[in-house]
Design a protein around this nucleic acid. Structure first.
Lengths: 207, 207, 207, 207
DNA sequence: AATGAATGAGCCTTCATTCAT
DNA sequence: GATGAATGAAGGCTCATTCAT
């Protein structure tokens, strides 16, 4: 009422609030009331702007993907014509930084991983749409690194492994210590080691 | 109706039903009514035997872990005194088979991954308890493979990566095709390739 | 709480309250809350006993039909072997008394007429089931009165007209005065005149 | 969208749309949003032009009556100075054709019957205003046919019965088959038979 | 004269939990 | 040890209405 409040239109505020609340509580755990409250909007605003909770969810999801990609470009800032090793490093960096982001993007990634393992069935389409092209790029990169000798199956498995290495780092901060223990480990180190592991593995497999 | 049905006591039937229903729907999506119905028990049985939904959840969770480990022993059937390469293969096999299991164990693993990325906060203790010793074993194995030269940080990162490669395979069958495409890929191949990738990577990193 | 309240089980109280409230307000106008309040039951009782509002509606509807028929038997108390003129009188009496009933049965009949003209689509089955046999009986009776000469079509039209004469008397007490004006008219007179009109009409048509 | 569409002013389009929607769904079932959508008007148009839903309802109701009477004049096209038997036939024809109309007028009549049996309390005034003069005309006609001997009560009852015979034919097309069965029955036949039944009945009653 | 974003009251339904038996 | 009727809090959604433009 009297507060300055954000100047954004209600629809945008709802979208942002939805991202937060869905990411923190999952689809079922999130309540429309909470989202509206956080967006400083009326309880009926969701219905007015999005039709229902489910469609808000999908819209929030798409927005989260956009935000994530904008903040961490897929190629990690590495030019197209750089050597494949560097491009792999860039891609891994992009993925891991997204995954370990402690802000909005991190929320979204946790959400994405949860959706993949236990799909709510509500964003499968959007998910496939977005993820498929990324996978294709990764497959091509691995093929480039491995040469023509390697079987298609191995290329697929390695690509998938790379994704898994990165996306598996999705952890709530409070769980990090359970996994990484006392040794202080920063993102740069993880990125480097993961890249070296993968590059080394591919190299060795091609011998 | 009138049939004697499974001889198990109500409490056991509830536990089993809870595993199924929680695994399929998550904590929030699962309803006490559905669990009781599937266990052919009274609607009040959950509160009677477990106090409330949350405590049933924790109990079901522990049971699921036990079942998984019983079906797929942690060492993959490889003897303690086998060479470390084989022991790694065994461990990876155990993990991947659990993860890609299409029965009860697979359900549970999907659930576990979702819990790790978006913890409901209800099983964190149980999770830590169970997972910590496994991580230690893996760390020791990687150290054995890598030799004393490698930094502690790298050992931790590689161990984590191995877990991630395996647990990332948690996918609903309907999502498999999105990720593995047309190329037919069976579990044995995945296990072998993943093992070779990791072993090759470690070897290369130690040069 | 402290009041004596009716000893009937909750389900019965709900059914009775539902009849009243639905009859007064129609399906849409009736609220589950009002029904529960009037039945002195919890707001969730409808869901517990009937599943949802619609199924309660159907159950209430069937109950209302039963109550109506019990109070005003279809044959109006005229024996099977009485002359057809008397049997017609009995049937008309039964219909008109139901229709003009100022209690629960009247409610139900108003409801029935409204349902026939603007079906909610929820009781069409039950309606057809109940009404069909009654129509057949009436058709047979008219045929008996008219003889074999009359066409099937005329028999159907006359039967329908008899029903309409009676059911058209469904009026909220406050509307009666608009239709019957100042002249005092009691049910007996209406029943007699209507019967004589119909019998006379049939007789004349057969000449 | 961009087309000019019907040239009628918004208020008229609203009125027409309201007739349709109210007739199809009843007062409560109709929504302002649906009416505005069908009238291709703004959601706020109803409140702007009519104040609120209830006043729109009354206005629509009056309009529907006008439309009905314009399409089916009350006297059925029979001249004032025709013999009373023919005038009765004309009135019955007018009523039955209105009632069995499958267009807008039929909608309105269904609505009228539902209002009479279960008044929403919103159009009672308008209803009385319109219906009263018609009843008086019918009373006079029946008196003319029956002669001075018949009691006032019987005249009222017969008039009412005539109305009921006609208005009772208000049926959704899908219910027609339940009532008229397989025998093909057209409106002309119904009108003739109903008229003969009534005329015969009056004649017989006057003997 | 007309718009469309926004509101808030109210409805149906779900669901974990309780209580008397 | 077990039951099932009953409860109440809470959630998603609808919808007539309002308000600033």
């Amino acid at each position: 009422m009297s507060e300055p409040k954000s100047k954004q239109p209600t629809k945008q505020r709802l979208l942002q609030a939805a991202c937060e609340v869905f990411a923190e509580n999952g689809y079922r755990g999130a309540t429309v009331a909470e989202i509206c409250k956080r967006a400083e909007a009326n309880i009926a605003a969701v219905n007015y702007h999005f039709g229902d909770k489910e469609r808000l969810y999908i819209a929030a999801w798409r927005r989260a993907l956009d935000v994530a990609i904008e903040k961490y470009p897929l190629d990690g800032g590495v030019p197209h014509d750089a050597p494949p090793e560097e491009r792999l490093h860039g891609r891994i960096e992009s993925l891991i930084r997204k995954t370990m982001d402690e802000g909005e993007v991190g929320h979204m990634m946790r959400f994405l991983v949860a959706e993949i393992s236990m799909p709510s069935g509500k964003v499968l389409e959007a998910l496939t749409e977005t993820v498929q092209p990324l996978r294709r790029t990764m497959l091509e990169l691995v093929r480039e690194l491995a040469g023509e000798e390697m079987s298609d199956q191995d290329v697929v498995i390695i690509s998938t492994s790379i994704y898994n290495i990165c996306s598996g780092l999705v952890l709530r901060p409070e769980m990090r210590k359970n996994f990484f223990g006392k040794v202080g480990i920063d993102q740069d180190m993880i990125i480097d080691t993961a890249t070296r592991l993968v590059l080394g593995g591919i190299k060795e497999m091609c011998k």
